[in-house]
């Protein structure tokens, strides 16, 4: 369940409200007005003023009443995310995989909104911060990959896709021996932005439950180029990150797009991202097909699609997957 996912409105003040889970409210020791929905589909009403902070016992009572979601004003969303990060994601006593879950969930609504409707500056800045935070968790020696994968979500949302691809990129990069924190942060942020060009593609086309027409496919296939154009002149993205955005659909056999380059012409970071991207695509729910299991997706990547990817990277990817026996069953 997401910690923070949907927007609503206070019927009295008209201010935007954002939904968060009751669990996370406790962890973040919120100091703001709290709203609840008495019935599903009802507008949220004020439950507790800021001057009377929620106690653990209050939250337990809410859970007993079957209320799993509470609302806070949108203006407190950033504070909430910061608190959750400080109090949960930075807590070394909590397992890295669990910290990953919290980090992912508290950022969902913000990322989705910034990605679809926000300014490019907002998305890039946010990706840099989230990329660093992800790196902090994923590159730790005590991360249990099996635990991490068991938490992955496989829906078709933009955020799920970007954060999963970024996470897979970090996993693969660290196993390939990339250990410099700055490089890993750079990879994570670049991977979060790899599909930024899809902002210019209509949702109806992206989510079309059937084959695309030639014109639609051509349009969708422009997204690496659009993303590169948008980001290349900003000055705050390095060339390697830009190559993730521009080349993540290139294939080692030259059958990719937008340029159709092959082998070493493709930047290594883009090669990492292409494996992560395809792995997520195969394992996620899509409007036009059922998801593959993690093990089946690994077989496809190492088998029928093997000419598309860097063979050393595929080997490394399969090694990572083999260390998570429950997924290879």
């Amino acid at each position: 369940m997401s910690e923070c996912c949907t927007y609503s409105q206070d019927i009295n003040t008209g201010q935007s409200l954002v939904a968060i889970s009751v669990d996370s409210a406790c962890a973040a020791s919120l100091q703001c007005d709290i709203y609840i929905q008495r019935e599903p589909n009802e507008e949220p009403i004020l439950y507790r003023r800021k001057s009377h902070p929620l106690e653990k016992a209050d939250l337990d009572r809410l859970i007993k009443r079957g209320i799993e979601t509470i609302f806070i004003s949108k203006s407190h969303e950033a504070t909430y995310r910061d608190r959750m990060y400080e109090e949960v994601c930075c807590d070394e006593t909590i397992a890295p995989a669990e910290r990953f879950r919290v980090l992912r969930d508290i950022n969902e609504a913000f990322f989705e909104k910034a990605f679809r409707g926000g300014k490019l500056d907002e998305v890039v800045g946010f990706s840099e911060v989230l990329g660093s935070q992800l790196t902090e968790i994923i590159s730790r020696n005590d991360l249990v990959v099996e635990d991490l994968l068991s938490l992955m979500e496989f829906d078709n949302g933009t955020y799920t896709h970007c954060i999963n691809v970024s996470t897979y990129c970090l996993l693969l990069a660290t196993h390939l021996g990339i250990s410099k924190v700055e490089e890993l942060e750079s990879i994570a942020a670049g991977a979060l932005l790899h599909d930024i060009g899809k902002r210019q593609v209509q949702l109806s086309v992206l989510n079309k439950p059937g084959p695309l027409t030639d014109e639609q496919r051509e349009h969708v296939q422009r997204h690496p180029l659009i993303g590169f154009e948008e980001l290349s002149l900003r000055g705050d993205m390095n060339w390697r990150q830009l190559m993730i955005v521009y080349q993540h659909h290139e294939r080692m056999d030259g059958l990719g797009y937008p340029t159709g380059i092959s082998g070493d012409e493709i930047h290594p970071w883009a090669r990492i991202c292409s494996i992560a991207d395809v792995f997520h695509a195969l394992t996620s729910i899509r409007p036009y097909r059922f998801p593959l299991s993690v093990s089946a997706a690994s077989v496809v990547i190492g088998g029928e699609m093997k000419t598309a990817f860097d063979s050393e990277m595929v080997k490394c990817w399969n090694t990572i997957m083999k260390t998570t026996p429950c997924f290879m069953a």
């Binding site: 180029l225 590169f228 154009e229 290349s232 002149l233 521009y246 340029t259 380059i261 012409e265």
Partner: peptide, 11 residues
């Protein structure tokens, strides 16, 4: 549009 011996990048 033209042919060239090297890859050029958008922008």
């Amino acid at each position: 549009s033209f042919l060239h011996s090297e890859q050029l990048f958008p922008m």
